[in-house]
Design a protein around this nucleic acid. Structure first.
Lengths: 71, 71
DNA sequence: AGTAATTTGTTCGTATGTATC
DNA sequence: AGATACATACGAACAAATTAC
């Protein structure tokens, strides 16, 4: 089994993907459950990643709707 | 029982205390265990608070030594 | 109209690793 | 060698908002 990425690495990876245009402004990121599958980590780890990106202003979370890249 | 502060509120409270001079540059913050007692929250919640303040550059953690206010 | 499912968000408990004293 | 302290992750539970049917 490969060593899973740490939450900071996942945060940096997601930030890079957003910056590169993979997730353009206004777009919706995969759900927590999808991200936890994509990165093979626990749900709570993804929640921590998103919380970090939120604090950095990289994404905006909207309970019940999703996580979005600000315009 | 009083409603406990959320981890963001605790982070803001600590940041305010640092800014006000209660924890001057170079000083050492209370340990995770002490903070979790002070704020009546779980150890893991304090770890999350410190992680947030670390990301903001407000504190620097040093495993085995403590958490410090940068100069 | 109303219930169930989905999604974000927080917290506790526990375990483990690493560094320092 | 042992105790202390920071740091990360998993599992589980729960709340609140939204969406789907």
């Amino acid at each position: 089994m490969p060593v899973p990425m740490s939450y900071t690495q996942i945060a940096d990876d997601l930030a890079d993907r957003i910056k590169s245009g993979e997730y353009p402004p206004g777009s919706k990121l995969p759900s927590y459950n999808e991200l936890s599958t994509l990165y093979s980590v626990h749900f709570g780890t993804i929640a921590r990643v998103i919380a970090l990106l939120r604090d950095r202003g990289v994404v905006i979370g909207s309970p019940g709707r999703g996580t979005f890249v600000p315009d």
